[in-house]
Amino acid sequence: MAVLFIKAFTLTLLGLLPMVNPPTTATLLLGLTKGMPAQQVSEQINKTAVCLFITLCITFFAGTSVLSFFGLTLPSLRLAGGLVISVIGFRMLFPSPAGKQNAQVSGTIAFVPLTIPSLCGPGTMALVLSGAVQIAELSPHISRLPLWTGMVAAFAALSLISWGVLKMATPVCRFMGESGIDALTRIMGFLLICMGMQFGITAVRDVVAGF
């Protein structure tokens, strides 16, 4: 059982870490929290780590059932995620004073967009769902418990790693200064738009391939 636990933990962590990509979310955090009090930024980072862990667990244990219940497919998930990312990127590329004030007051960036779709995007969800399906298809004599606990432990490790990387964003923010953060925000906005378009292209390609 210990071998199964270690194997599930290692494969899950190594497989999801490049998909989660916390440094990219750290740069997004810098842009979205420009001018936000340090305490509020810290609260958002803490909430983001918790949201990431909960989202990964829900996706793993109930993701397939939820998609089936609502009649959703992975291409639709990718397309929706791409649209969300594109809208956020457009707002970062062309910021408005009113938009900045609303972002600071509402404090709703922990779940969207930091957790979904930045840390836990369609690709990450698809990989987690794939792991859940593979475990479900294993031979009945193989114990599922160490595999489940191994993956959940990997989700916790990913959340902890993401929390540490996001915490480093604040010192970087002080080092870069206001003009540096503004420039980085616009660059990240453009890159997010590109990412959103890529998600959309991938979704359309998957649909066409299905036909």
Rank of each mutant, 00 (worst) to 15 (best):
M1Y: 10
M1W: 08
F5N: 02
I6H: 03
K7S: 14
T10R: 08
T10Y: 10
L11S: 08
L14N: 06
G15E: 14
L17C: 06
P18M: 12
V20Q: 00
T24K: 12
A26M: 08
A26K: 00
T27N: 09
L32C: 04
K34P: 01
K34N: 11
K34H: 06
G35M: 02
P37M: 13
A38L: 15
Q40A: 15
Q40Y: 13
E43L: 09
Q44K: 07
T48I: 07
T48E: 00
T48Y: 01
V50N: 00
F53S: 02
I54Q: 06
F61A: 12
F61K: 11
A62C: 08
G63Q: 08
G63H: 05
T64Y: 07
L67V: 06
L67G: 05
F70V: 14
F70Q: 04
F70E: 09
G71T: 03
T73I: 08
T73W: 07
L74N: 01
P75R: 05
S76E: 05
L77D: 01
G81H: 03
L83E: 03
V84I: 15
V87D: 03
F90M: 08
R91F: 13
M92I: 13
L93T: 11
L93S: 11
F94W: 06
P95D: 01
P97D: 12
G99Y: 12
N102C: 12
A103K: 05
A103M: 12
A103V: 11
Q104K: 09
V105N: 12
S106F: 15
S106E: 15
I109M: 15
I109H: 09
V112D: 14
I116L: 13
I116T: 10
P117K: 03
S118T: 10
S118A: 13
C120E: 02
G121C: 06
P122T: 14
M125D: 04
L129Y: 12
L129F: 13
V133D: 13
V133S: 13
V133H: 08
Q134M: 15
I142R: 07
L145N: 00
W148G: 00
W148E: 01
G150W: 01
A156N: 01
A157Y: 07
A157K: 02
I161M: 02
I161P: 01
I161C: 00
L166E: 06
L166K: 06
M168L: 15
P171W: 14
P171M: 13
V172W: 11
V172M: 12
C173R: 00
G180S: 06
D182S: 13
A183K: 06
L184W: 05
L184A: 14
L184E: 06
T185L: 03
T185Q: 02
I187T: 10
M188N: 11
G189I: 10
L191R: 10
L191F: 06
I193D: 03
C194M: 14
M195V: 13
G196I: 14
Q198P: 04
Q198W: 10
T202N: 11
A203S: 05
R205G: 09
F211R: 07
F211K: 07
